[in-house]
């Protein structure tokens, strides 16, 4: 799906846990997430800590969108 969005001319960032699959699929901007059932959260944290963690990941995703890339790139959080 990321590839089709990219093909339509819209920059897209893929936030996902299993980044090798994202590479296979052909995403160009990739941000690693926390875990499969909760990519942008962590139920073990307090609600406030969890929100901050999510903010950090989304922030990284936005950084990825504003960064020029030539090839598939993983933006570590």
């Amino acid at each position: 799906m990321v590839k089709e969005i990219e093909r339509a001319g819209i920059p897209v960032v893929h936030v996902c846990t299993v980044t090798p699959i994202s590479m296979t699929v052909g995403a160009n901007r990739i941000v690693p997430a926390i875990a499969i059932p909760h990519p942008l959260g962590n139920p073990a944290l307090t609600p406030e800590e969890e929100y901050n963690l999510r903010k950090k990941i989304v922030n990284r995703a936005l950084e990825a969108l504003t960064t020029e890339v030539k090839d598939q790139t993983i933006f570590e959080v």
Partner: peptide, 17 residues
């Protein structure tokens, strides 16, 4: 993606589990 384009969307965040 075409709908997003027509709506003037500039960027997309796709999340996967």
């Amino acid at each position: 993606a075409q709908k997003l384009k027509q709506a003037g969307v500039n960027a997309v965040i796709m999340t996967s589990t």
